[in-house]
Design a protein around this nucleic acid. Structure first.
Lengths: 207, 207
DNA sequence: ACGTGATTTAACCATTTAGTTAAACTAATA
DNA sequence: TATTAGTTTAACTAAATGGTTAAATCACGT
């Protein structure tokens, strides 16, 4: 650990720690102290690198939001058939969230608290929702025209797919309780779920 | 407002305010001051009625969790065919959340922060997840046996239905941004969504 | 061995926040 | 009118927290 720090890894160590703590506790619940401890340094140095909690949070949030969106945007807006896209979304979402289970709640919570942030970020990053949705709508239309899938609203379909992927992680404690699963069984359920979702969606889309 | 207070409505006013503030801000982000203001009283009186933030929060959380679960548990565990249940779940979920949009994030956030709480509450309330799930599995099995629906894992199906209902509210700011909707259009989308979900699920379940 | 930048230590400040208290006030009621 | 419960005011305490600072220490390359 000492080595990493000396090797100029401190900034990264802090960002990692901040990401972890902010993501887990949310902005209001996060303590600069905990971030410092988690990074293996002290508060003084923490403020030496990043002036304030707000500044640090903004960096973390922007980074996390990009993580969450950028890959997705590429898939949704990119080329490929509807079925390809659906499979890719599911694969991407589940893998991403599995490695960072409390990412979605974090994003959603802070976003409801301050929706403008998303707009600002979107503008900066040059993301283009309307092109993305256009590509997705096009894929849907194509599949419908080919009679591969029944007619369906593209917006609703996209929400459906995302819902099926993301929600289980958000509701994890609830699901564990209701279905009486331990962590191992939950993990197993999630893994099965990848195919389950694709099957569920494609089955629903049959004309 | 003055009247209500004198009419012994103060306690209720406080609980309403606390519900609102806690639900919106989360425990860490909530301020006793804001609760008092929201209730139209002052901090002194707030503490006079409810000793501490924690105590008040526990009450609110228990109440909100009951709101969220009890109705659902009745539907899932109660009588009726699978299709009836699915329709009832969708109806119930969407209506409930529509009137309290940030209820789900609140529950999930605080629950990930402290999963034991759910277990404790479940025990106290005498809820019985295993019976509930048993009833639901039974409904699924029955439908499968009658060849009304294709074979499917009951646990996954339940998660699917809940996902489709709850997630859109959690992701509201994101959905608004990506699909470029204003509040009015979002509301419209949610309303359409009731039938959309039922159609989506039932279509997927066709044998 | 020296100098430099990174890091720690430890003290400190200012602000926010939960929670308390005593005294004054209000309105209904006995 | 005197009592009483509910309420406000205003002051206060104690703790937590974000942020700062100066001096000491450490590790490294020259």
């Amino acid at each position: 650990m000492a080595k990493e720090k000396r090797d100029n890894g401190t900034e990264k160590a802090i960002l990692d720690a901040a990401r972890k703590v902010f993501t887990h506790r949310g902005f209001a619940g996060a303590r600069m102290d905990e971030i410092a401890r988690e990074a293996g340094i002290n508060r003084a140095l923490l403020h030496y690198y990043f002036r304030s909690k707000d500044k640090l949070f903004d960096l973390v949030f922007a980074q996390r939001a990009r993580e969450f969106f950028l890959g997705l945007a590429g898939i949704i807006g990119g080329p490929g058939s509807l079925e390809d896209k659906i499979k890719a979304i599911v694969e991407h979402d589940i893998d991403m969230i599995r490695s960072q289970p409390d990412l979605p709640i974090f994003i959603m919570q802070e976003l409801t608290q301050n929706p403008d942030r998303l707009v600002r970020m979107a503008v900066e990053s040059g993301a283009n929702p309307s092109m993305m949705m256009k590509a997705f709508r096009h894929a849907v239309k194509e599949a419908v025209d080919k009679k591969v899938v029944r007619p369906i609203d593209a917006g609703q379909l996209l929400i459906n797919v995302m819902s099926l992927c993301v929600y289980p992680f958000i509701a994890k404690p609830m699901i564990k309780a209701v279905q009486e699963l331990d962590d191992k069984q939950f993990e197993k359920m999630i893994l099965k779920r990848k195919q389950e979702i694709v099957e569920f969606v494609m089955s629903s889309l049959k004309p």
